[in-house]
Design a binder for these strands. Sequence first.
RNA 1: GCCGAAGUAGCUCAGAGGUAGAGCAGCGCAUUCGUAAUGCGCGGGUCGCGGGUUCAAUUCCCGCCUUCGGCUCCA
Length: 639
Amino acid sequence: MSDIERLRHSCAHVMATAILRIWPDAQFAYGPPIENGFYYDFQMKHRVTPDDFEKIEAEMKKISKENQKFEWKGISREDAKAMAESGRLGGLSERPGNPSVFKLDLIDKIPEGEQISCFQNGDFIDLCAGPHVGYSGKCKNVKLTSVSSSFYMGDDTKPQLQRLYGTAFESREELEAYFVRLEEAKKRDHRRLGKELKLFHIDEDVGQGLILWTPNGAVLRQELQSFISEELRKQGYHQVFTPHIGKLALYKTSGHFPYYKESQFPAIIEPDALQQIAHEGCGCAEMTARLDAVSAQFANQLNERTGREVIGQDRIMDPEKLLDGFLLKPMNCPHHIKIFGSQPRSYRDLPVRLAEFGTVYRWEQSGELNGLTRVRGFTQDDAHLFCTEDQVAAEVLGCLSLVKIVLTTLGMTDYRVRVGLRDADSSKFTGNPEQWDKAEDACRKAAATLGVPFTEEPGEAAFYGPKIDFVIKDVIGREWQLGTVQVDYVLPVRFDLSYVGADNKPHRPVMIHRAPFGSMERFCGVLIEHFAGHFPTWLAPEQIRILTISEKVDAFADEIFAQLKTAGLRVTLNNDADKIGAKIRNAQLDKVPYMLVLGEKEAAAGGVSVRHAKRGDLGVRSIADFLADVTAEVRERQL
RNA sequence: GCCGAAGUAGCUCAGAGGUAGAGCAGCGCAUUCGUAAUGCGCGGGUCGCGGGUUCAAUUCCCGCCUUCGGCUCCA
């Protein structure tokens, strides 16, 4: 544990002590240091609100002044249990009738034979492995930041606890600097900039988590798509288009329906069928069952193909009663699979790489929605690669290099790479173990070539195969998964895909799912924050703004405007009656990369005064020079 | 979905049981100006939505919706 973590952990104990002095019934669960501070989870009758912070902080100050010593004590399991039973553990004194329930549970979770220890500061004794600072006097530069709720052990079937967050630093200056930094970070929040720069809009009447791309944001997105499309052409991809819905049977085959029902928009039922079931007086439960069900033939075929019972007897129904419908597509794979399967394929054709900016819809929980980063409808820069088993490693590598090109071009270097592996004892993962091993190995090896540290995370795989994810942090430190590359041995079996090998026999292809941006929405959200709204010229919705000094140069300004426009640049003209200072200020606030100041001086010389939003006044230049430089800057996608 | 907080003009926010205010933005007029705010004037709000209490509710109470911070979830 680092020094700052040790300090913050001690602050969590000081906070607990303060809470107990005010509300003695509090039962504490778990209180670790975290990236920017610490928290403690607890349960008590009083509900803490931000109005209570002052009172709690005052008590914490007092405890810090008392300069209590943090003392380590090794105790036996029996003693620990006895102390928890009496309410002494995680309390200021024994609390008859109020046993330390969470501490009791935590003690049970400590493996047999491991040393159990507690720490005492003043009257507060807590089950804790430490370490801690020497004295509470160190815990003086501390501030409570927020209160929320959490589930005990992160399990939503366990009791809901209150979680109080705080932060602490060695010095007061560092503490203050932290909050200044936080304020600065908020200014680059994509939700705020999205409004200020008119990039996107979310409208209640359209629906939560559904993005309306306004003209400025549409430019940003379109430029990114063009960039990706160019790279895809270089790498031998084929562009396809598919509809936004597909029949339920498609998703029953893929295995997504009904198992992921909670995260899909409900099925769309055909009008005739809807009328029929309404006529029959069919209830909701009955309707759901009939939607979920399949015919015996369907189940048998799929079970036979996969070699296991993926569809149980309970889902089989008389074909007469089956209810058909459509699903708003939650992913693009089945559609692409159908394109691959639409014609015979030879091993000579492989790999087949099908790409689409495919829009998908997922029913995310309302509390999870967040600006552009977590939405209910989004467009993936998706592609599916169908290849032979021998080609998997090379194709994964190709996908990774694409992700790397993308991130490098945008100057995004602060990301981490996660290799998601299967969790041995989870039934969530399908397919055979040897293929999993092979695929996991290919991912691991490919990730190693990135030259970026990566972590292997068991249980993070997709149900059909392992994956490599690129994860980036937003301004407030939350992590978002962007690019992803996933190897899949399962869907080709479920859809019975095949190609003809050199031996003139059918073979099963392997699929790779990949999206370098992940989703256009999320990526743009992260990108807005990355650039703090100051996009490089090639991405800027408005690249150049012409600012006139007086009406006398209107004709000259029109001429320059027309020239830049003809050159394909996104240019606007501000010939309002404002003073030049105001025009510059407005252009700066709109984060327009180039401002061209035109007055009588420029008109006489036939030049333009160039000002850059970040580099300031660049002096007078000839229009030809300026045009050449900016077009090159845009063409080369300079940062 | 759960816990907590919030919702007043396009934006940022103030306000109070007696049907609302500022700054910025917008519009109009004047100004013709040299690298981050020219002046004057005008318009703009069913105070998130629906109920209830009250002579009177935007303000108090209840329900809902949306947003924000967490939790859980993320094929």
